[in-house]
Simulated scan of single mutants.
Amino acid sequence: MAPSYTETQIPFTVPGVDKPCFTYCKIFGDLKTTKKRPLVAVHGGPGFSHDYLLPIADLADDGETAVVFYDQFGGGRSTHLPEKNGDTSFWVEELFLTEFDNVVRHLGIQDGYSVLGHSWGGMLMGRWASRQPKGLHRLAIADSPASMDLWVEAANYLLAQLPQDIQDKLKKHEDAGTTDSQEYKDAMSLFYDRHVVRVKPMPEIVAAGFQMMDEDPTVYFTMNGPSEFHITGPLKEWTMVDDARKIAVPTLLINGFYDEARDSVVAPWFQRIPKSRWITFPNSSHMPHIEETEKYLEVIREFFYGPFSE
Results as ranks from 00 to 15, higher is better:
10 I>E: 08
11 P>K: 10
11 P>G: 08
11 P>N: 09
13 T>E: 15
17 V>E: 07
19 K>I: 13
22 F>R: 02
24 Y>C: 11
30 D>R: 01
31 L>S: 13
35 K>H: 14
35 K>I: 01
37 R>W: 00
37 R>V: 12
40 V>S: 01
42 V>I: 13
46 P>C: 09
47 G>D: 15
48 F>N: 13
48 F>L: 13
49 S>V: 12
56 I>C: 04
56 I>Y: 01
57 A>R: 04
60 A>M: 03
62 D>S: 14
73 F>E: 05
74 G>T: 03
74 G>M: 08
77 R>S: 11
78 S>G: 11
92 V>E: 03
92 V>Y: 05
94 E>I: 10
95 L>A: 06
98 T>F: 03
102 N>P: 05
102 N>Q: 12
103 V>F: 07
104 V>I: 15
106 H>P: 12
112 G>L: 04
114 S>M: 07
114 S>E: 05
115 V>Y: 08
116 L>A: 00
117 G>T: 00
117 G>P: 10
119 S>H: 15
120 W>N: 14
121 G>Q: 13
121 G>R: 11
122 G>V: 08
122 G>E: 14
122 G>A: 10
124 L>F: 10
125 M>G: 06
125 M>P: 09
126 G>K: 07
128 W>Y: 15
131 R>E: 15
133 P>N: 08
138 R>G: 10
139 L>N: 09
